[in-house]
Amino acid sequence: MRCTQCDGTELEPGFIEDGGEHSQGYARWIQGPLERGLFGGARRLWKTRWIIDAYRCVGCSHLELFVRPKD
């Protein structure tokens, strides 16, 4: 993998934390536009959730984000 900003090759793995109420501790990507439910929360029912993996470029600190299916 290479950084899309500086073309660096040293990318440090990590993740994006979600500290919100009832969270599992990590952020997820959900396909499709954001739709709000009756009480203002995001509608997620029947949508596939993907875990976000983040890689930080050691050279310029740019974040590269990739998704993978939930384990």
Rank of each mutant, 00 (worst) to 15 (best):
K70V: 13
D71P: 09
T9K: 15
I30M: 12
D7P: 01
G32F: 06
C57M: 09
R43C: 07
D71S: 12
C60Y: 08
G32C: 04
K47V: 02
G59A: 14
T4A: 04
G32P: 02
I30E: 01
E64W: 02
F39G: 04
Y26V: 14
F66Y: 12
A54S: 13
P13Y: 07
H22M: 06
L34Y: 02
V58P: 00
V58Q: 14
W29V: 01
G8C: 11
T4W: 07
Q31L: 03
T48Y: 02
Y55K: 05
K70D: 15
H22Y: 12
W46M: 10
R28Q: 15
P33Y: 03
V58K: 15
H62A: 10
D71T: 09
Y55I: 01
L38G: 03
K47G: 04
G37L: 05
H22P: 00
L63K: 07
W46R: 10
A42C: 03
T9C: 08
G20P: 00
C6D: 13
D71M: 07
E21F: 13
K47P: 01
R56C: 03
K70Q: 15
Q5T: 07
E17I: 13
R43F: 01
S23D: 10
L65K: 12
A27L: 11
L63R: 13
A42N: 05
L63M: 14
E64K: 12
P69V: 05
G14H: 03
E12I: 15
C60A: 09
G19H: 11
T9W: 07
I52F: 03
R44H: 04
R36C: 05
M1F: 10
L63N: 11
V67I: 11
R68Q: 14
E17D: 15
G59T: 13
D18P: 06
A54M: 14
A42S: 10
A42F: 02
Q24V: 07
P33F: 03
G20W: 08
A54D: 02
R68W: 10
G8Y: 01
G14D: 10
Y26G: 01
F15G: 01
W50E: 08
K47T: 05
K70P: 01
Q31I: 02
L38W: 09
R36G: 02
D18W: 08
E17Y: 13
G20M: 13
D18H: 14
P33G: 06
G19M: 11
C3Q: 00
L11Y: 01
E17L: 14
I51P: 00
G14L: 03
R36W: 05
I51S: 00
R43N: 06
Y55C: 01
D7C: 08
G40A: 06
W29P: 00
E10R: 14
G25I: 11
S61K: 13
R36V: 04
P13W: 10
V67H: 00
S61I: 05
D53I: 01
P69W: 01
F15L: 09
V58G: 03
E10V: 15
F66Q: 14
M1G: 14
R43T: 05
E10D: 14
S61M: 08
L34M: 04
L65P: 00
T48K: 14
T4L: 10
G32Q: 07
T48Q: 13
R44F: 02
L11V: 03
Q24L: 11
T4F: 10
E12A: 10
H62N: 15
G20I: 06
W46Q: 06
F15T: 03
R44E: 13
L45W: 07
A27R: 00
A42H: 04
G41E: 11
G8Q: 06
R2N: 12
T4D: 08
P33W: 04
D7H: 14
